[in-house]
Design a protein around this nucleic acid. Structure first.
Lengths: 245, 245, 245, 245
DNA sequence: AATGAATGAGGCTTCATTCAT
DNA sequence: GATGAATGAAGCCTCATTCAT
């Protein structure tokens, strides 16, 4: 987890989320500015929520002039959109990476839930950014849902999970997880929140208490995969229209 | 109870929410104006979310001058706080009223969940206000949680519900319900969302699938208030705002 | 005369200043409201300066409703004017009272200068009000000038004082006195400011250094009124306001 | 230096006051705009007094948008402070320039007094600005005092002037001068106010009537700058503002 | 591309004044 | 007279956006 040079007292929230921007070769300074801005935006979301994003603050955080922001984004909305896309992509990478090698649908779901909750404790700023944008942006909700969907369907196919409606099940798992993250940020203190939540949600998905407990308490895979995330390429400049963020 | 004269195309979201505090006597102008403002704020939350509350719009909506707002609230923040308190009070009344006469903890929880979800379909504006402020205001979350707590503890005492942590259980129930409401506002269409969600959450709380299903499908009590609500809440089309909630 | 009930921590600045308007008979409550308002205005001037007079604050300070102010004054300007007149009257009374029985023009001038400076130390709030309104209101300046004029002319007639222009002499005496008061409020600390200033001004008016010194150091007459003032004016800490006057 | 293009009927009050900082080269836009704003603020002070400074009027006067003001000053208070500093600096330059080449302390004091009074007649707007801010801002008073101090001490050292307290002497000279300026603005008309005042103040500082008269009547040095001022400052009638200064 | 000064619409807030009770 | 809620013009300030360099 490398981390970007920060000038403020804000802990690294982008480090894990952003790529290590292949600065191995140091000759794409200009192309990286956009990523710098997106990263800065994420840090601001974390601290102040989506609604508060101010472009002059963004410029300051990214250590560029305010005019520079407009070389990459035409409006404030476009910035929000780009950050949404960025975060959605990060979700994709992280969630897939999380349970790589695990082929039990119930376990995969459990791992996802637990990782998000654990990460909240480790990195509240990141959590705040996630929650903030998750609540704000329907597209993000869809992106998360899609990852959940495959695992839930897998679990169902394996005869482990049962639910009447995949959509409703996705909603419950996702919002309960987000809700638990919020509770933690609200100040709720407890050990093993992750396993407790995972167990309850597995029960909601049809597992018996015993089985749910067992799966929820399985050791988490070694998340060395964070490095993988780091490798992903910077987003392309072309503006993907439509709402989001 | 008659609902407030509206000059805009916004359906009644406050009429049903205002508690019948005996201020029918018209000699407390100040109290009435304050309520007018809070009601107007709720309507605005419903349409635009908490973050967008603008005090000049609030004044317009409440049909008073902008200066009047400041006779009641010193700052924008104070308005948000007051509305939060108001909504929390409404919750108190509504939730208690919902399952009055029901002494089974699991049933009480189920009724609460289902009522909120059903109300979302009937009155999306109200739902939007609830979601918006629920996400915005920790105090609201606490207020809701407290009502949940007693029912959960009752159910546990009755040997019906089981959970490791009451706090976590409250979070899961509340956020899953909110999440389902959001899904509905996001456009998710399904019959019997309420029973499905209630059943899953009861399972999360330790009931077997069969018992959960049975309780989740019990007929809802005839809430006279609800009848009124249904009457008053015309389907509301409302341009699908930027990003749902 | 008893001073007005104060609800704040502001020492009495009006009690000593209020002329004994024949309210000895205590049966004119309504007639006194106006005086209450003027007194309250003086207290506010003392604390915040003329420019800051706010009618709602005035009403609050006078413990009447804001509407009541408009039963006595039609506009804010009228309040300021009334306070000006009031203060001018107070000056009249005080200044004449000061050197009653003294028939030496130079001494009379000296006494006036010294009394104002001494009072500043004793009662900074009163001083602030005086300075504030003196600078604000030309009429006050005229009122003060008239009292000065007669003493200066007396002194000239007596062969004690000499000046080319009575108007200029009045200005120098008055503004030097006010200036000394400001210096004291600005934080200048010294013993015997009053005699030093009086001496210098007497010299400016043609007295030799020796004569000026002698007159400036004469004991002040026992102003019974002053005794009261001293009693009533507890040292006032008051944050040193940004820019004094 | 030619003065700033004015779009209003206000005579030049800034041109003469602006120090000739070599910002003639047009490549410091920011510095120029700031100066533009300060100059505009001085013009407003002259017309309306410090208390009335309105930032939208300031922007209008400076012919920039209101937002621009906030690129240079964070609050209204900061504008006042900046103008105070500016005026203090101008004082520094002007006063030193006034009696350059004169090495008699008493003469130097006399020259300063007389110049300010004469300038009041020539340029009432400038005088109003000076008076207004002098009364408002303690720092300005300090700045003026410091220039006076050295001359007074010089005169004392030369055996010309005598005073018990330098601080009190400074106060008397400064406030008497300001007071004379106010009298002039109040409408007092007389020839040779400057010499009369100077003479009286020199007497207050220990000079005999004869010596004081002689020094007070010495010809003023030819301030080339002053000539320009006289040229530029048309008599300004100006509605007699409610309460003068 | 980067810069950063300038812009101005629009929101927040104050406060003198009105008016029905 | 006294009250105090209501009014709304007017000021302060923010911030997304533009544009010349």
């Amino acid at each position: 987890m490398a981390g970007i040079k920060k000038q403020k007292a804000v802990p690294e929230i982008t480090s894990q989320m952003s790529t290590d921007t292949g600065l191995t070769r140091g000759h794409k300074k200009k192309a990286r500015t956009r990523q710098t801005l997106v990263d800065a935006a994420l840090r601001i979301f974390a601290q102040h929520g989506v609604a508060e994003l101010q472009l002059n603050k963004l410029a300051e955080e990214a250590q560029v002039s305010n005019g520079t922001v407009y070389n990459y984004f035409r409006t404030r909305e476009e910035v929000l959109e780009a950050v949404g896309v960025e975060l959605a992509n990060q979700f994709s990478h992280r969630i897939s990476a999380m349970s790589v090698g695990v082929d039990n649908g119930a376990e995969r779901v459990s791992i996802g839930i637990r990782m998000f909750i654990r990460e909240t404790v480790q990195n509240p700023l990141w959590a705040r950014a996630v929650i903030s944008i998750y609540q704000y942006d329907k597209n993000i909700r869809s992106a998360v849902a899609n990852y959940l969907r495959s695992d839930l369907l897998l679990g169902e196919k394996q005869g482990l999970l049962q639910f009447e409606s995949i959509e409703i099940a996705m909603g419950i798992v996702a919002f309960s997880t987000i809700g638990s993250m919020i509770s933690i940020l609200d100040g709720y203190q407890a050990a093993a929140v992750d396993t407790t939540v995972a167990q309850m949600l597995l029960m909601a998905l049809g597992l018996t208490s015993a089985k749910a407990k067992k799966i929820a308490h399985m050791p988490l895979p070694e998340a060395e995969k964070e490095t993988e995330v780091a490798k992903k390429a910077p987003r392309q400049p072309g503006r993907p229209r439509k709402n989001s963020v």
